[in-house]
Nucleic acid binder design. Structure first.
Lengths: 239, 239
DNA sequence: TGTACATCAGTGAACGCGCGTTCACTGATGTAC
DNA sequence: TGTACATCAGTGAACGCGCGTTCACTGATGTAC
């Protein structure tokens, strides 16, 4: 257990990383279901059976990639959230949305791996959940400091109110029910528009996806109740 | 070219339909990339090479399934739109949204086939576009009769306004720029929330997805500007 | 510091599998005269 | 209505391929005394 074994351990960690990197490269080229242990091994100049020293099966490699993807998008969102003025909730919302989309555009197949169709024949193990929650928790952090909207103007249905109140008393403690619901709607919209862009469903409508995305972020930010002075901020940022 | 050849042609059409049906069944079981000509043939009691009389390649079969899926969701939306009071735009929006979700829940793998991650190694030919547009056109029809919102209260960014004006003068003639943008946002939200539900990203938040979906439809309907008396209608429908 | 032993990474062959596609063929169905 | 010919659906064997996983093995790296 001295420095020498650490050397072996370090070599192991290094190769594990390289395997995942190569697997990620193949993901970009072919998609998740085409990911092949043999091809990864071939590319690394190893024999396919050697990979079993690092991952007990193909599915475990896939799981590792999924966890990495969730971690990457989560980290991107966290970083964007921390970067700016913490008091400017509108700016934080914008930054988080852009970070998620930026990561998705830079890593389209990893995005598809976790937010697209589930990989056929693959069941995600429970330990992916914590990693999936990282990015969600960033939104929850924002909702916690969002201004409560005048709910009376547009009340929730009784069933929805009951659900939202339950959440606001447990996992989402401290967030107004109306804000929870609006947050969920904005959150699904965010991933909806990113998926539509990535998967080609915006072709033939708008031409400049940046412009549409930014507008969408603005309007949904207002919808949730992220700040009022947002317009001015946005305008000055845009120029 | 008499009744007799029609018999042969009918047999051909029948088997073509059966092949697609079986393929769809396998889609449900395994996902798109696992769709196998040999398995389809096996299940139909044919030899695999016989399928080549009906589809020139596996990709062509996949294309046929994609076209059918787009047609099915499009038809569901059209029918829902036509079913109710044409003057009640809010009710039509609700009906269309529920029809899309209903179809998606009933045919999750077909939904994933067209709205999930693109199938690796497969390029959709151009003739799928017309079918993809069917469901979109239903939304466009609604936007055409939506009340223009008081745009001055929440103006579009200059770049967005330019894009939206271009659309309102060409493919989306007659629809106010602000309504176009809000329609796009609501549309991506609709598919975003359906995808999140189907792909398991709502697990751990809300429990009753029906309730959340309906609330989302209400709020996004208001957002776009589909009717003002919607609340009353909704409430009475819900009971 | 030196030696005996244990751990571990990587090899290479093999198993058993399913896939898409091609091709020459048989026999049934339809057409023309 | 009957016959010669053309069209078409479906067969069965084969090609060439890649896959995940197992297993007995070699040799290098690390550990204990």
């Amino acid at each position: 257990m001295g420095a020498v074994q650490n050397a072996r351990a370090r070599a192991r960690a290094e190769l594990t990383r390289e395997i995942k990197e190569e697997a990620r490269r193949q993901l970009e080229a072919e998609g998740a279901s085409a990911l092949s242990l043999r091809a990864v091994a071939r590319e690394l100049g190893m024999v396919s059976s050697a990979l079993y020293r690092y991952f007990p099966s193909r599915d475990d490699l896939l799981t590792a990639l999924i966890i990495d993807a969730y971690d990457a998008v989560g980290a991107a969102a966290e970083e964007a959230d921390r970067a700016g003025d913490q008091a400017d909730i509108g700016a934080r919302w914008r930054a988080v949305c852009r970070a998620v989309r930026g990561w998705a555009l830079a890593n389209p197949h990893e995005y598809a791996l976790v937010y697209g169709s589930p990989v056929p024949g693959y069941r995600a193990p429970a330990d992916t959940i914590a990693h999936a929650n990282r990015v969600t928790d960033v939104l929850v952090g924002l909702l916690r400091v969002a201004e409560a909207t005048p709910a009376a103007a547009d009340p929730l249905s009784p069933a929805m109110a009951a659900e939202a109140i339950r959440l606001s008393e447990t996992v989402l403690a401290g967030i107004a029910p109306d804000v929870i619901v609006r947050g969920l709607i904005a959150w699904t919209q965010l991933f909806g528009i990113i998926s539509f862009e990535l998967f080609g469903h915006l072709v033939g409508s708008v031409e400049d996806y940046d412009v549409l995305f930014n507008e969408s972020v603005e309007k949904m930010g207002t919808f949730v109740g992220f700040g009022a002075a947002r317009r001015g901020v946005t305008r000055s940022r845009r120029r």
